[in-house]
């Protein structure tokens, strides 16, 4: 049953560009990118209870790092560019995560919120590097001899990276590290008493989360093709938080579904024009009232036996 579900899922994902109209290939890429961010954020929030309102900032760092690398060094292969974007962002995650170790709950949320603002300001003011408000146009990336100029080619890059990162996240959460992280969420003091090195694991969660978001940022630059400080406002961070809460905290499958739901909603409501935020807000409220705990826990209630916290 599981294998069948996985198999048909793979068929749908791989066959998508041939079946769906081009626009939906682009949209699927966006969903995959947001899913990576959501997983990254969920590793932080869902597993160690550290809420971040600054992930748009991490996304921006990854996106600008990848874009600048593509522009300055066009010969660097794409995987290396994405890895670099992830690493640069992870380093920022470390720099932010260590001082934030002392912060909890709301204070951490506020510190990360402020971090998001500072990143946007930094992009604006480092205009010799980032072209500030003029925005940065990202040239088509290359893999060996191929330039990724079509939505389909970019889609395959994005879903490949997303698949790798989903697998990696599953592995992280199922190992000793994952159990340690979950223990941190349940009770920091109990975890510490059971020999979990609290500070190390919390920092690790921050770094991994930033890495995921940084890689997603690199893909964002690739798929959207244009970056500007306006792309990474605080509402984007809030969207990411909405994704993991709607999807379900502490669930990787939930993160992917949350990203899919929020991205699709955002897109399909664009035609509502002035009514868009009204409808979007109403859907958020209703889903939280009737599905507390998000999609993942609702699924668990429907199919208790299949409910693995993937």
């Amino acid at each position: 049953m599981r294998a069948a579900a996985l198999g048909s899922g793979a068929v749908v994902v791989l066959g998508w560009p041939w079946a769906a109209p081009r626009y939906f290939v682009f949209l699927a890429s966006l969903i995959a990118i947001n899913a990576i961010v959501a997983i990254g954020l969920n590793l932080l929030t869902g597993y160690t209870n550290q809420l971040s309102f600054g992930h748009a900032g991490f996304l921006a760092i990854g996106a600008y790092a990848a874009a600048l690398l593509t522009i300055q060094a066009p010969l660097v292969p794409l995987p290396a560019t994405l890895l670099a974007a992830g690493l640069v962002t992870a380093a920022m995650g470390l720099a932010l995560g260590v001082p934030c170790l002392r912060l909890e709950g709301l204070y951490l949320a506020m510190a990360t919120l402020a971090f998001g603002f500072v990143v946007v300001e930094a992009i604006l003011n480092l205009d010799w590097l980032t072209r500030g408000n003029d925005g940065l146009r990202v040239p088509a990336a290359r893999i060996g001899p191929w330039a990724l100029t079509t939505d389909t080619s970019r889609y395959y890059v994005v879903v490949t990276v997303a698949a790798l990162l989903i697998l990696a996240a599953r592995n992280i959460t199922r190992t000793r590290t994952g159990r340690a992280l979950l223990a941190v969420r349940e009770s920091e003091i109990a975890a510490q008493a059971s020999g979990v090195h609290l500070a190390a694991y919390k920092t690790l969660a921050f770094v991994v989360s930033a890495f995921y978001t940084g890689v997603a940022g690199g893909l964002f630059a690739l798929v959207v093709g244009f970056l500007s400080p306006d792309s990474f406002d605080v509402f984007l961070s809030v969207d990411f938080v909405a994704m993991i809460i709607v999807g379900g905290l502490g669930s990787i499958l939930g993160s992917v579904m949350g990203a899919a739901v929020i991205t699709t909603l955002n897109d399909s409501l664009a035609g509502f024009q002035s009514y868009r935020p009204l409808v979007f807000g109403a859907i958020l409220i209703v889903s939280m009232l009737f599905m507390p705990g998000g999609i993942a826990s609702a699924l668990q209630k429907i199919q208790p036996r299949q409910g693995d916290r993937a």
Binding site: V238, V241, A242, P277, L278, F280, I283, I285, M288, L289
Partner: peptide
């Protein structure tokens, strides 16, 4: 608390 956070967020949009 997280759910309530999202509810108030939805309210602000609406």
């Amino acid at each position: 608390h997280f759910d309530v956070l999202i509810i108030t967020l939805g309210l602000s949009l609406m």
